[in-house]
Design a protein around this nucleic acid. Structure first.
Length: 568
RNA sequence: CGGAGUGUAGCGCAGUCUGGUAGCGCACCUGGUUUGGGACCAGGGGGUCGAAGGUUCGAGUCCUUUCACUCCGACCA
């Protein structure tokens, strides 16, 4: 490709809303263009090219693993989503609309329903299984707050695939195989990543793992152990139970006057007691289908922090939201002095697992200005769940080493679904005995467009992008410094033609611009290698440039062609 | 959802307080000079000032309504 013919509007100026390197460089480098600045982007030729390269890697590895590509209708009848029950559950991220006949439709944020629908119409026998189908298509999620360019756009390209098996064992095997396949994909793309345990979220299902591209700018906090290979999203991380502090507050059960002591900190100071022995009572409103809601109290040790996603799962809610003081009072709860033991009948109380067997605890009396001391939860028959957010320094549940936080970009997520969709949607097959069974499913996603952002987050410097070999928009860039110098042009054209013949994807910078502008653009675009044909050609020399580190080697103009042929 | 802010040329912004010819930088077009780190000179094209209504002789500017976008926040009960 000739630079002079390429639609590639590079700019010096950084878009005002861009903070992440990937966002800045993808826009400045003319890869993508914002459409009205609301999480929608156009891909310009270069962006499209990179997208296609990443997509090709994903496709190749999946095909190798025996998956088959299909393409599902982008607009989905809402009836399918009502069948699965997700029309309500998915929330506002699901874009809903009506057609001219007033029928409901959605723009698919993920396509379990559509794929199951396709399969239930065509697969009837165990002889047709296993089956693994995928598509690489646009998705739409009406994000609350789209930001960070391609990282969290509303419209994005995702690979989603679905496996159908006759048994849990077979599905589990496929799940493990996909984990290996994903590792190959991310490795080929040149990414540093970590596979972590995850929460399944709105998709549902049991076991799930996320593929996190490690980057400080990542939106997800992941908990990792440096000693073993344990890694988990903060939403799913577990830890070794904390050892109790030695100073146990001895007290008989009684009510204590504690004016203006509404926080764990204040309470800890008031009684001179470690927060470990305080009960933290967090009130939330749990939202359910059809606009129903309920107030729930989560009780955990004062030294722990509530993990909201775990809490949400514990009560099977669609979402948890904050409660106002008025709502609390109306429900018979006293802000600042709530406790799990004195809560009104109608309020559901969920205890953290670490509260089992807890003794010598202090909690709110649900009465203005009073706390209860000397509470024991030993033998209490209650609703227990894991509710705590693992903190840095907590001990690994596998090997008892300290855990550490790091940041990651969720680029892939694999789920063991089971029969969660096949049952309600009636995706059944006849087994060897002629008995109808629901298919056992897995679902697997890769954020293809997000990967572009992830690659840049992990591979850039203060000048621009540094694409990895598998993702680069071109293999090689040939820069003619001054197109009025006939010798430079002649050599550039010759190399260009010879590289094209070799099948190397090469970009020839044949623009009228000055040397500086061309180099700035080269650095911004981030093609792995370049040949700079410039002033020193009169001494018989050209430069071979490596983008990563901007290393420049002088090479004799006579040998450059042979060197390139050898390298590419 | 709560709070703050911004909508003016493709992009980034000034002008709004105090109403009176629509501006600047980048980008773009023409001509010329320049060619190793985002050049310079001269000339030029490009605008429903987010939308609707109102006040006024006159509105980008004042008033009302509305839409969009951006930023910050959303466990310690």
């Amino acid at each position: 490709m000739r630079f002079s013919r390429l639609l590639i509007p590079t700019t010096k100026e950084t878009p005002s809303d861009a903070t992440l390197a990937s966002h800045i460089y993808l826009i400045r480098g003319g890869f993508i263009q914002s459409v009205g600045g609301s999480g929608l982007y156009n891909y310009l030729p270069l962006g499209k090219k990179v997208l296609d390269k990443v997509r090709a890697v994903v496709k190749e590895e999946l095909d190798k693993a025996g998956c088959q590509e299909v393409s599902l209708s982008f607009v989905t009848p809402a009836s399918l989503w009502q069948e699965s029950g997700r029309f309500e559950k998915y929330g506002k991220e699901l874009l809903r609309f009506k057609d001219r006949k007033n029928n409901d439709f959605v723009l698919g944020p993920t396509h379990e329903e559509m794929m199951v629908n396709m399969v239930r119409q065509t697969v009837k026998s165990y002889k047709q299984l296993p089956l693994h189908l995928y598509q690489i298509n646009l998705k739409f999620r009406d994000e609350i707050r789209p930001r960070f360019g391609l990282m969290r756009g509303r419209e994005f390209l995702m690979k989603d695939s679905y496996s159908f098996d006759v048994s849990y064992e077979a599905m589990k095997k496929e799940f493990d195989r996909m984990e290996e396949t994903y590792k190959k994909i991310f490795t080929r793309l040149g990414l540093e990543f970590r596979v972590v345990e995850a929460d399944s979220g709105a998709i549902g299902g049991s076991g799930s793992k996320e593929f996190m591209v490690l980057a400080d700018s990542g939106e997800d906090t992941i908990v990792v152990c440096d000693n073993c290979d344990y890694g988990a999203n903060i939403e799913a991380a577990i830890r070794q139970e904390k050892a109790s502090p030695t100073e146990v507050p001895e007290a008989v059960f009684s009510k204590f006057y504690t004016p203006d002591t509404k926080t764990i900190e204040a309470l800890s100071a008031f009684f001179h007691v470690d927060p470990y022995y305080l009960v933290k009572t967090v009130a939330k409103k749990a939202l359910y289908d059809e606009g129903k809601s309920a107030i729930v109290l989560f009780a955990l040790r004062g030294s722990d922090t509530l993990q909201e996603v775990k809490a949400c799962n514990a009560v099977d809610a669609n979402d948890l939201v904050d409660i106002t003081e008025e709502e609390l009072l109306a429900a018979g709860l006293v802000p600042g002095y709530m406790g799990p033991t004195m809560a009104p009948e109608a309020v559901r109380v969920v205890y953290d697992n670490n509260m089992k067997e807890a003794t010598s605890m202090i909690c709110g009396a649900n009465e203005e200005g009073y706390h209860l001391v000397g509470n024991s939860f030993k033998g209490l028959d209650a609703d227990y769940h894991d509710l705590v957010a693992v903190q840095e320094g907590d001990l690994c549940a596998c090997c008892v080493s300290p855990l550490r936080y790091t940041k990651g970009i969720e680029a892939g997520h694999i789920f063991q679904l089971g029969t969660q969709y096949s049952e309600p949607l009636g995706a059944m097959f006849l087994d060897e005995n002629g008995k109808a069974q629901p298919m056992v499913m897995g679902t697997y996603g890769i954020g293809v467009s997000r990967l572009l952002a992830a690659i840049i987050e992990q591979n850039h410097d203060d000048k621009g992008c540094i694409w990895t070999k598998a993702s680069a928009p071109f293999d090689l860039q040939i820069i003619i410094s001054n197109i009025k110098d006939e010798a430079q042009v002649a050599l550039g054209e010759k190399l260009y033609a010879s590289m094209l013949e070799l099948g190397v994807d090469v970009l020839l910078d044949d623009r009228k611009d000055r040397f500086g502008a061309k180099m700035k653009d080269y650095e911004l675009l981030g093609v792995p290698h370049a040949v700079v044909i410039g002033k020193k050609l009169s001494d018989g020399l050209v430069e071979f440039v490596t983008r990563d580190g901007m290393l420049k080697d002088e090479v004799s103009a006579e040998q450059i062609e042979a060197l390139l042929k050898e390298r590419f």
